[in-house]
Design a protein around this nucleic acid. Structure first.
Lengths: 109, 109
DNA sequence: TTTAAATATTTAAATGTTTCGATGTATTAT
DNA sequence: ATAATACATCGAAACATTTAAATATTTAAA
């Protein structure tokens, strides 16, 4: 006679602990551009959230280019987009940043 | 009457603490490739140092491709090359990895 | 000193990225 | 309804990256 348990976790739970190589690669690529690094650095000065229009003003790029860069960051889950009427607010996803840092620390012996 | 002090630091000292955006971008780009991530992950299993030939054997790529990838990692200072006769040993540069992690943590509020 | 082994460089093809102008789509204001 | 605003998408040009074949360089062995 056996007692069987199946324990499953929501993907959100694992996000803290593990990160597969595909994801790690995607985040690294999102971080490998000067404009996108500049964008991410602005969040610190703005309590973790920024509006799309603020970002477009601050970069010397056209609106479609900025849109492209923000898409890279959102697709990598580094930014969470929140629609507010016709404006778009982005929030820095510190959980994903932590998971990425975790992946980097895991490289060390 | 004044007492004046000038305190300067060697660049190596700052390596731990700060990392400019150019360098951050370069490291991110070095980390944004599946083959290079696989290479870095092997260092953990080999006490932080690996031979070029071991890396070529383990990846399903030609020798020139592996050489190219290793160059990216060395140029980003993630790997330190050490010549041993006609072989080449690579050592994982944990200091640079830590400086990079530092830069990531600095993005958080 | 010729030969073999390990790694680097060059060249070229295929593919991916960045950028902008033009245009499309929502949403708010008039 | 129409116009204006905010953002996204498409298409194309410029540029960068990845890969492998061919070749070069460096070092050790015979």
């Amino acid at each position: 006679m056996f007692l069987c348990f199946t324990i499953t976790f929501a993907p959100e739970f694992h996000l803290f602990l593990m990160m597969d190589n595909k994801k790690f690669e995607k985040i690294s690529r999102a971080l490998s551009d000067a404009s996108r690094i500049t964008i991410l650095q602005q969040f610190k000065r703005k309590k973790g959230c920024l509006y799309c229009s603020e970002i477009t003003e601050m970069l010397e790029l056209t609106q479609p280019s900025v849109s492209h860069h923000l898409k890279q960051l959102v697709d990598a889950d580094l930014l969470i987009p929140e629609k507010e009427g016709r404006n778009l607010k982005y929030v820095l996803n510190e959980k994903v940043l932590d998971a990425y840092i975790n992946g980097l620390n895991a490289l060390k012996k």
